[in-house]
């Protein structure tokens, strides 16, 4: 297939996944911001969500204060933020349109529908309740796209590149959620695992739709290392780094087999997966969660550029 087609499919998936991630963290932040200080409301939630999204610098170039209004506008609607929900949908559609025939009709309709629907939302006159509904809608649009890809695409390289985009983006997003919450939200005088950050950890789980899953898996009250275990190492958890990498390795192997050739991407992805498989959560905390996550995010980005060099240009 054309490299550009693969590239477009890969980015369509990444943008749709990213839009959902943004909706989830905005939703969680709005919830967290309403908590009284004694329960974990730290007052800097809107600053923290910018860091989670990796968008603090771009934000500061455009706005003065990280108020609720400014941040939601920036992350959800701003055309000047290349990673706002709006920009994600627009870019996904533009990429999809360029490779229209490589998508199934259902996928196109999911993306085009989201893009057209987005125009109906007017950020200026939006109440909190409407904004919450908007975020719900973004999640369902992304789910519709994901489901249509899963259910309608032929299992060939079109599909594999599209899935690679999903899992690379998802791994990056999960890692970011863990990292930023751990360091930004926890007040300095509070010990890790103390009672105060209970709500912060439950918010993290909520962001990734894993609060119920946590209880099923661990049957315990919230413990930071178990939350980290769930999101980093647990292969049953579909958003975990380990699960994302199982999928990445699988799809890269499919591509390698179909083309009769392996390369840097295959080797690197297996190395990262092996590292995740051979790590215990105690090791993660001993070396420092932040250090572990930073290393992972860098590795994930390295794999992204290896895939790019090997297939997409």
């Amino acid at each position: 297939m054309l490299s550009r087609t693969a590239d477009n499919l890969y980015w369509v998936s990444r943008y749709m996944e990213r839009a959902e991630f943004l909706a989830r963290i905005l939703d969680a932040t709005a919830r967290l911001a309403t908590l009284p200080a004694a329960y974990g409301g730290a007052g800097n939630e809107w600053q923290s969500v910018l860091l989670t999204a990796g968008a603090a610098e771009a934000f500061e170039a455009l706005y003065d204060e990280p108020t609720e209004r400014n941040v939601t506008e920036f992350l959800a609607f701003s055309p000047e933020n290349p990673s706002s929900i709006r920009s994600c949908f627009e870019r996904a559609r533009s990429n999809a349109r360029a490779v229209r025939t490589a998508l199934t009709g259902e996928m196109w309709e999911a993306i085009n529908g989201a893009y057209l629907e987005l125009r109906r939302y007017d950020p200026k006159s939006m109440s909190r309740e409407e904004f919450a509904r908007f975020l719900e809608w973004v999640k369902s649009a992304s789910l519709a796209f994901d489901g249509s890809a899963y259910r309608t695409m032929l299992r060939n390289d079109n599909y594999w590149f599209s899935r690679l985009g999903v899992y690379l983006e998802r791994a990056d997003n999960t890692a970011r959620i863990l990292d930023v919450k751990y360091h930004v939200l926890l007040p300095e005088n509070e010990t890790v695992g103390g009672s105060l950050d209970y709500f912060q950890w439950s918010t993290i789980l909520r962001e990734v739709s894993a609060l119920t899953a946590y209880h099923w898996v661990y049957r315990e009250s919230l413990k930071p290392w178990l939350v980290a275990d769930l999101l980093i190492l647990n292969r049953q958890m579909p958003r975990s780094l380990a699960s994302s990498y199982e999928n990445i390795v699988r799809f890269l192997d499919e591509i390698g087999r179909a083309y009769g050739r392996q390369g840097v991407s295959q080797r690197l992805s297996r190395t990262i997966l092996a590292r995740l498989e051979n790590t215990r959560i105690e090791d993660v905390f001993r070396g420092g969660l932040h250090e572990f996550i930073s290393g992972f995010v860098a590795d994930n980005a390295k794999l992204g550029s290896a895939i790019n060099d090997q297939y997409l240009v």
């Binding site: 297939m1 054309l2 550009r4 390289d157 591509i255 083309y259 297939y311 240009v313």
Partner: peptide, 8 residues
């Protein structure tokens, strides 16, 4: 000679 860039 003209080529197209493909994933292969």
């Amino acid at each position: 000679v003209c080529y197209m860039r493909t994933t292969e």
